[in-house]
Design a protein around this nucleic acid. Sequence first.
DNA 1: ATGTTACCGTAACGCTTGTTACCGAGTCTC
DNA 2: GAGACTCGGTAACAAGCGTTACGGTAACAT
Lengths: 197, 197
Amino acid sequence: MSPPPADRAAQGEALSRAVWDVLAQQGLEKLTVRAVAAAAGCTTGLVMHRFPNRRALLLHARQLLHDTTRQRVEALEAAATSPREALRAVLRQCMATDPETITWSVVWVGFLAAAVADAELTDMHRRNNRAWRQRVERLVAAAAPDWPVDQVGAVALGLIAMTEGVAALAAADPAAYPADQQERMLDAALSAYGLSC
Amino acid sequence: MSPPPADRAAQGEALSRAVWDVLAQQGLEKLTVRAVAAAAGCTTGLVMHRFPNRRALLLHARQLLHDTTRQRVEALEAAATSPREALRAVLRQCMATDPETITWSVVWVGFLAAAVADAELTDMHRRNNRAWRQRVERLVAAAAPDWPVDQVGAVALGLIAMTEGVAALAAADPAAYPADQQERMLDAALSAYGLSC
DNA sequence: ATGTTACCGTAACGCTTGTTACCGAGTCTC
DNA sequence: GAGACTCGGTAACAAGCGTTACGGTAACAT
């Protein structure tokens, strides 16, 4: 007999996707084991055989969300032809400009709210967010090599907060924050900071 | 006999404060009627006599939170001596720079996550947020009277998203986002947009 | 003084939750 | 082919949830 680890990982990924779906469509209060199982098309038995408890399921889904976004960001960064284009591309995908990224942003807000009650979820968020911040600071420094460190930090923080904030706002009210307004906002900010491509 | 409506309102306010406390300290998942009653120092009987159900309690707390912030913002705006100072003061109090505003931001994120599952909570958020956005657009237009409309909109959106975003980030990781860094971020943005006082 | 009424705590209801125990079906080993 | 083992579904459990019904108490009106 062989417990193929590939299937286990694939099932864990499918269940994490089910966690995202429930979180995005039904909210944090309805994020139950039964709802996740229904979204994944299986029973609660499979869920509880794959994860020791509900918390472990949420933590895995959270970590997988972060890993996925990190890979996407790294691909964008590698594909860019200049530091400023890399910065813009990376920040652009952070906003909520289409149904998929809107869903992601809803899930992100959900995990953020869930982190209030869960120390490990909080730690996860902080680790991921600090890494994300360092990445953007590095990109800003590369896009403006002659800036002093504190200016790099202040501008990077402004850009991070702006994109993360508009993603949350667009997630809660997509009609009021269409994609083109978010793009114009980003371009206006990059232009004001002197970081236009 | 007289059912004094002042006491009723005061009790509703106290219960709403209890809702905020529970939401900030225990998170959305632990926001139960019993937890609210315990935080308010009463029993669930009083809560359910004051509000028809749990949802009404949350909606009232949400609306009261908005009304309170609106009054505070209007006072700041009225006390400012110039349009640019008004803009800066209003944006500054939106961030999470001290324990009180950090708590408010945690509560804000909690309500935002709860709005995913509740249409009325969503509507409330959209109404409040659109009014907030119009206010900032008006302040930006007053601070830069010669700007075209779309530039006013893009800059106002950038400022709103930035302050709201940094408030959420600071709420989740206060140590990484101290008050002075948020202030520097705001000043750097206002300066870059050409809106310094 | 007494009946009435509003107020609010107590206790219970039905329901949903996370979690556990059990059990059948399929699969690999020898 | 028989047996052991893994997988996953079913059903049950206790606990906690929102909500409801009931009872006692205090204040008012007459």
